[in-house]
Design a protein around this nucleic acid. Structure first.
Lengths: 190, 190
DNA sequence: ATAATAACTTACTAATAGGTAAGTTTTCCT
DNA sequence: AGGAAAACTTACCTATTAGTAAGTTATTAT
């Protein structure tokens, strides 16, 4: 309750995030959100004019979040493998709640989305990709990581392993995800 | 078969396949199918009682198709890389129509599906995974392929690269997919 | 030729979707 | 204390969804 509750907006984003990662964008409704928060449907529309706006805000939220992670990793006294681990950990957490990453979720519904969202998603992907790529490049330069592909390509391989890894885990179990996770590290370490 | 049209059922499956790979399971309706085929909504229900039954048939269709591919590859006078290429080619084709693989599409909507479908999808994944795994194992045994992971893990890596590769291509373009495709081959060749 | 049946169409449901306009309550600011 | 503005609720609306029952037309088998 904002004038009743100060953070309904953030709560909506929180639930929205959960729903899109668990069910997918086209499989949840404003009713799902309002039910969960014990508010009315129109209250959700008050904070986010339409579903498109909610998704937009959600993607922006992820952008902010990954920008923060990028900063933290830059400042952190961690080796490249440690930084990579920090990144991978996010996917491991998703996996534990049978959720998938928002990029994969949105990619699957991509052809049903308005252009505005598509552009924001491109922004998110570019950010995430360059974060991984730079971590890999830096690690290689410092001799902490070893791989033969370009950092960009290696980043693509890792990202796709993770994104589809959490998707696969839903169906064939978490062991497969764990095998993937360990293999990713092995491929750039050694 | 059909009084008016002999292959309406197969046409429905064809369109259904396209729709699920382009829009996703929760984003298409029987109306989309009937519009495309110039038949009425109820005609689709005549052939497939409900959307669940259609999806079920669709997944079974893929199972049949991959079983056929498995047989063809077994009989084909191809080296392991060639067999792998045949497999990868399917994803490359998907990519060209901005479509994604059915496994990734279903994985994204997985938590909205009935148990019956979930089981069939597991069957499909097991089939596809073992096809790749066996191709890799055989290639390694014959000295045609070189990789350090177990065939099972290497198959997981390749499958996730491809599944998420076509998803990513929707957003960030086909060049990224091509980079992934080439890297997959490099990783097991030489 | 006809009866059975397969393949439909017509004409409906009931439920849910996303969304809006107008009114009400709460909080904030002066 | 008294607005103004923010944060809602109430009460709708229209479109679409999956789905069904009953009737119609075409095909097939006898």
């Amino acid at each position: 309750m904002s004038a009743r509750n100060t953070d309904t907006k953030e709560e909506i984003l929180r639930i929205g995030k959960q729903l899109i990662q668990f069910y997918g964008y086209n499989a949840f409704s404003y009713a799902d959100i309002s039910r969960e928060l014990n508010i009315k449907n129109a209250a959700v529309h008050y904070h986010f004019r339409g579903k498109e706006d909610l998704l937009m805000a959600l993607v922006q939220n992820y952008i902010d979040n990954y920008q923060l992670l990028a900063q933290q990793l830059k400042a952190a006294p961690l080796k490249a493998v440690g930084k990579l681990d920090k990144f991978i950990e996010r996917y491991t957490l998703l996996c534990e709640t049978d959720s998938i990453c928002i990029i994969g979720s949105i990619a699957s519904d991509y052809n049903t989305l308005p252009d505005s969202v598509k552009e924001k998603v491109t922004e998110l992907i570019n950010l995430v990709m360059s974060l991984v790529e730079q971590t890999l490049a830096e690690g290689k330069r410092k001799g902490e990581l070893v791989f033969t592909e370009t950092p960009k390509t290696q980043a693509l391989l890792i990202m796709t392993n993770l994104a589809a890894g959490v998707q696969l885990a839903r169906i064939s179990g978490k062991k497969d995800y764990e095998a993937i996770r360990k293999a990713i590290i092995r491929q750039v370490k050694s």
